[in-house]
Simulated scan of single mutants.
Amino acid sequence: MSALYNNGTPEVRPEEEIVAEREGNGYILRGVKGRIGQISYTMADADTWIIDHTSVDGEYRGRGLARQLLNFVVEDAREKGRKIIPSCSYALQQFQADPSLSDVWAEGDASRYSDSYSSNGVESR
């Protein structure tokens, strides 16, 4: 990412190292500013996880970091044979748009787990 000097010429910044770490039921991203992103889930039952929150600091958006966080949870779910209910609006959008996530998308009445403030409800497939 580059910024502009006052005279309009671009300032080149070196790429920042961003590290992903597992934290509780989810993952966080750390950069030079500390925590810059996170995804979390809760358990609906022994076989189903509810992704309830995904966020990336505004300065770091547009780099695919939220999708990387989602991919960590999806891979964990696949490895453990779990299903996912995408309750947060970002996760729901990704599940609706990407057929490669269908193997972990929980069928049934997902609306009872949705966060109406962030996702406007979760539709069942």
Rank of each mutant, 00 (worst) to 15 (best):
Y5T: 11
E17I: 08
I18Y: 00
P99M: 06
N7F: 09
I51L: 07
R112H: 14
I85S: 04
N25P: 05
K83C: 09
G81V: 10
P14T: 15
M1E: 04
M43T: 13
K33G: 06
G31D: 01
I85F: 06
S100F: 07
S119E: 08
S124E: 10
E17F: 02
L69H: 01
I84A: 13
Q93C: 09
E75A: 10
L101M: 08
Y27M: 00
A110I: 09
D103H: 07
W49M: 12
V56A: 01
L92G: 05
C88K: 03
L69C: 03
I85A: 07
Y41I: 09
W49L: 11
Y90S: 02
A20W: 00
L70Y: 04
R125P: 15
Y117F: 13
V12H: 13
D47H: 14
A20H: 02
S114H: 11
P10V: 08
R67L: 10
I36N: 01
P86F: 04
L4K: 15
P14H: 15
G121Q: 08
A66K: 01
A97M: 11
A91F: 05
K80D: 08
E15G: 07
G58W: 04
Q96W: 06
Y5K: 06
A3S: 14
E15W: 04
R22P: 03
I39Q: 01
K80W: 06
N71F: 06
D103A: 13
P86T: 05
R30P: 00
S2Q: 12
Y60D: 00
I36A: 00
G8D: 12
K80Y: 07
R112Q: 15
I39Y: 01
V122Y: 02
S102W: 11
G24T: 00
S124R: 10
G34N: 10
G26M: 02
S118M: 12
N120G: 15
E15I: 10
N120M: 13
E11K: 12
L101G: 07
Y60E: 00
